[in-house]
Design a protein around this nucleic acid. Structure first.
Lengths: 366, 366
DNA sequence: CTGTTAGCGCTTTCAT
DNA sequence: ATGAAAGCGCTAACAG
């Protein structure tokens, strides 16, 4: 713990120590052709001896080439984004790029600031999963022509490459599953409707409800971006009259809050209430009951994002923006079941419903 | 989507457009004193008009001052690290620093590469949560004197500032809780013993077992870093003879695998087996049964990390490395209960144990 | 207050 | 194959 800063060794130091010119040393470190093996050896030797570490800031400044990709993510708490991040990072690394992560924390202002920051580091490209209304992002990015891919929370009207999940369709499928089980009072709990994909999810839900002639039962509750908020919203919902028999949560975070609320309301899942989660998470298939969910194809989305970006990085991009849309799939597990008969509702302490209900309980107990 | 790269505007362009010198423009953008309001205005104007964006690579290169902090994390899948990351980032941002995240993916080689990368970006400081045996990290960092804080997976013998949780103590407390419930065959499932903190956790477990005269029942199972591995290990454990009555998992990831194995083995939690998790996660208190766990003080750890680093950044660090150790607390929930009576074990389909067991089941059903 | 100048550490022609 | 020299975009002295 010595406080005097010994100035870092530079390439010049290495060149001097090796008795070669700066240019030659540079070539060696870059692994370029045209240096005799002998000198090459000398330079490596000197570099090791001096503990040389390249200054990539200087290198990138001079060559105006960067291998960093900005990745702007709205919420690191959301396992879907984390998974996506990991997938994309693997692809990027494999192609010789690194990710520069920027965390927007679901705050548009912070997002704008982070984008500015990333851009100021001269990244070669950008991947953005925007938060509430991506106006800021657009503004920042329109004028500069960095290769860009927008993901997840965008729609096809965005004037850049996008990769998304077909949320509307998936939400519709999910709702139909609930309807098929016999549910009518199905409530959709969504974080924010100014999030394009959440809006689509809500629309998909409404589509299915209407198609089934259940429009008058349709109910969309907007709960905010945190699990605390969704907890509160769900709790209100459950204690009100005309309680829904099924809940469909529009996102990972909302699911967590809803689940907590269901506990607090002392409702048994799935006997007294069903829950379907848009977004899957590892823990959902591990406890009792396993949560039915809509699983987004993270691998495919991540791969598509990288492909689109990589193409642009190599200057092979098409003049027209490409919009890729992936299909999500419904994973029926144990949190969705036929609605509870109102009559059986009262003696909730000892669950002895129909044979089916009974079987379920045992099954779920495993 | 135009493919010709319009070269980014530079400060020089701005200066020209504003009719001032480069130096003046620089002062304005830096917000420095000593520029007349009129010119200041002109420069801002020109900058906006041209869509100027500072090149922070150049700025940092020239001033050899950086506001980036490298944060090397072993596993983004682990919610504890994510939470820590968020806490530290908040503090860093508040002090005017940004984080440069590097994901080691539990791979020492990748970790070394990432550290090298981060260092080459001339960060002002480094925070490292090392993975298996941190030799690489040490090697890379010894010679350079960047302010450094090591966290979580280190012990006090490390020659730099460290912030850790008192794992040994916490694990010992946890084990005692299990013992107090009447368990004897308690197995500790740990990811890897070459992880200092895992080693400490195992030691804490062994301490408590020995103290209780249960040494001959003590059993430590090493399962690896992924939930797939811990799933397999736990499954083997549960199907073997002399099945433990309680499991104590040494980390987040191990808990997930163990839980899946318990399901697969069709064992009821906590009636047929108890589970205690070292590391808490939001989902653990949301489903049935809520998982008892040892909760690390993320906020405190994060704050401590930043304080230690910030002091060094301001040159106020003490000559001797500081080792901070935080206390974790046991959160008893529903996954830990007295051991199942062997006699009741057989008729497992319909759980009608003692009154206590019955009550538990109802309680947990909420 | 303002402009001029000299680099930060590196890459990249361009001669030799 | 090698070295010299010219910057990348910016900051920080230093004169004026």
């Amino acid at each position: 713990m010595d406080s005097r800063k010994k100035p870092a060794r530079t390439l010049k130091d290495v060149a001097n120590a090796a008795g070669v010119s700066l240019g030659t040393a540079s070539k060696v470190m870059a692994g370029a052709e045209g240096v005799s093996p002998a000198r090459r050896q000398q330079v490596w030797e000197a570099a090791r001896r001096l503990g040389y570490r390249r200054n990539s800031l200087a290198a990138e400044l001079r060559s105006s080439r960067s291998t960093s990709i900005g990745f702007v993510v709205p919420d690191l708490t959301n396992s879907f984004f984390i998974q996506l991040l990991c997938v994309v990072e693997d692809h990027a690394l494999a192609s010789g790029y690194r990710l520069l992560l920027a965390h927007a924390q679901e705050d548009p202002e912070r997002e704008a600031e982070r984008i500015r920051f990333v851009l100021s580091r001269q990244v070669a490209g950008m991947i953005i999963i925007p938060c509430h209304g991506y106006d800021h992002a657009i503004e920042e990015l329109r004028e500069c022509d960095v290769p860009l891919v927008m993901a997840d929370r965008v729609d096809n009207s965005f004037p850049a490459n996008t990769v998304t999940t077909d949320s509307r369709r998936a939400a519709s499928d999910g709702t139909e599953h609930l309807i098929a089980l016999g549910h009518k009072r199905i409530t959709f709990i969504v974080n924010a409707l100014d999030l394009v994909n959440s809006r689509e999810r809500a629309d998909g839900y409404l589509d299915a409800m209407k198609r089934a002639g259940l429009a008058r039962h349709a109910r969309v509750v907007v709960c905010g971006m945190t699990d605390t908020e969704s907890h509160a919203a769900t709790l209100g919902l459950l204690s009100g009259r005309e309680r829904p028999t099924a809940l469909f949560t529009g996102a990972n975070v909302a699911t967590l809050g809803a689940l907590r609320a269901i506990r607090d309301a002392e409702l048994r899942l799935p006997d007294e209430i069903s829950l379907l989660s848009f977004d899957d998470a590892p823990w959902m298939s591990v406890l009792h009951p396993r949560i039915s969910s809509i699983h987004q194809p993270v691998e495919a989305v991540g791969r598509a994002i990288w492909q689109l970006l990589h193409k642009q990085l190599q200057g092979e991009s098409s003049p027209e923006p490409v919009h890729l849309r992936m299909k999500a799939d419904l994973r029926v597990r144990e949190s969705t079941a036929p609605p509870y008969k109102a009559s059986a509702k009262e003696n909730s302490a000892a669950p002895h419903g129909t044979a089916r209900t009974r079987k379920r309980a045992v099954l779920a107990d495993r």
